[in-house]
């Protein structure tokens, strides 16, 4: 079997694992619910039945959010790594998440009216991600060294954290409480009614990412080669930032900042699939990202009665050692 066929088979296999992950995720909840109740919750929904509510309003949106968030952050990470030609790039490391956090902090804790609309949280997260994405892009024109760019990304993160601390110090108790809750990260806040809006934005960002697969492959060869192939570097760079900001901002707004997925999953995908072809890497990041976050959320749910772990802690606990492994492996090469 050729590598290409092997990869396609692997992708199919991962797609089959996804429903199994759903079953495990559903079963991980603290309240035991039978499959007959699960089907009743969909076909004979009773709004006064707690179990029906748990199925429709708690477990289902949580699973969908885990899939969307995992996919979105992984695909963003992959695009950033390709754009900056650096395997350690990702929305979290490059400060895109921090941009969202800063603007959400402004939105939640300063009471500036422009952010107080219905979609204030989402729009502020998107604006923050986009501005910080543009800043890092602008700097990347001047700074060519990958490590320097990562350091600048980390500095941007520290800078925004410092500003957030100042805002936190000056904010009133209720706003502070809301922000603290948000920054801990959670997949359980999204309601089923919010899913269509989130899904539409997710699909837009994801389709856009798939639309630029060809230029992304050209970027792997290097910017000069990509230009020779007739690709508008400027346009593609901007598109990558737009789609990354959209997906990161969207997920950060609803789930809080989630670390390491954008960094760890694309690297894991490259190790598994042993290719630089984005026709494989992109869908693989999408599926493995979803599976990774679903697995993390299963851990959160299983440990919840004893240790209340935020999702961000679990992704970091699994993701950080993975990243260290990638770095050590790369240095060894």
């Amino acid at each position: 079997m050729t590598r290409q066929k092997q990869n396609k088979f692997l992708l199919l296999l991962l797609l089959v694992i996804l429903p199994i992950a759903f079953v495990c995720h559903f079963a991980a909840g603290e309240i035991s619910i039978s499959w007959s109740i699960f089907s009743d919750a969909w076909f004979f929904f009773d709004s006064s039945n707690t179990e029906h509510i748990i199925v429709r309003e708690f477990r289902f949106p949580r699973f969908i959010m885990a899939c969307l968030a995992g996919s979105a952050l992984s695909v963003c990470g992959l695009m950033m790594q390709t754009l900056f030609n650096n395997p350690l790039a990702g929305p979290y490391i490059l400060g895109i998440n921090s941009g969202s956090s800063l603007f959400v902090a402004i939105s939640l804790m300063t009471g500036i009216s422009i952010f107080q609309s219905d979609f204030g949280l989402v729009s502020s997260a998107l604006i923050g991600a986009f501005i910080f994405g543009l800043i890092i892009l602008a700097i990347s024109f001047k700074v060519k060294q990958g490590v320097s760019l990562l350091l600048i990304g980390l500095m941007l993160g520290s800078f925004s954290s410092a500003l957030v601390s100042v805002i936190q110090y000056l904010s009133e108790a209720n706003s502070l409480k809301m922000f603290t809750m948000w920054i801990m990260g959670s997949l359980q806040e999204v309601e089923s009614g919010q899913l269509p809006f989130i899904s539409v934005l997710f699909l837009f960002g994801m389709l856009g990412s798939f639309f630029i697969i060809k230029p992304l492959n050209a970027f792997v060869l290097g910017e000069t080669e990509a230009e020779l192939l007739g690709i508008s570097i400027r346009k593609i760079r901007l598109l990558i930032i737009v789609f990354t900001a959209l997906l990161t901002g969207l997920i950060t707004a609803y789930c809080g900042p989630i670390a390491f997925i954008g960094l760890a999953v694309p690297n894991l995908v490259k190790i598994i699939f042993k290719t630089q072809d984005h026709r494989i890497l992109l869908p693989a990041s999408l599926i493995i990202g979803a599976l990774f976050l679903v697995l993390c959320d299963i851990i959160v749910q299983l440990t919840a009665p004893w240790i209340p772990l935020p999702i961000n802690a679990v992704t970091s606990l699994i993701g950080a050692p993975m990243v260290i492994y990638f770095i050590v492996k790369r240095l060894a090469q």
Binding site: G29, I54, P305
Partner: peptide, 12 residues
Amino acid sequence: PLTLEKILSDNL
């Protein structure tokens, strides 16, 4: 520390 699901089902 209790999950929201537990709180919901315990306090119907």
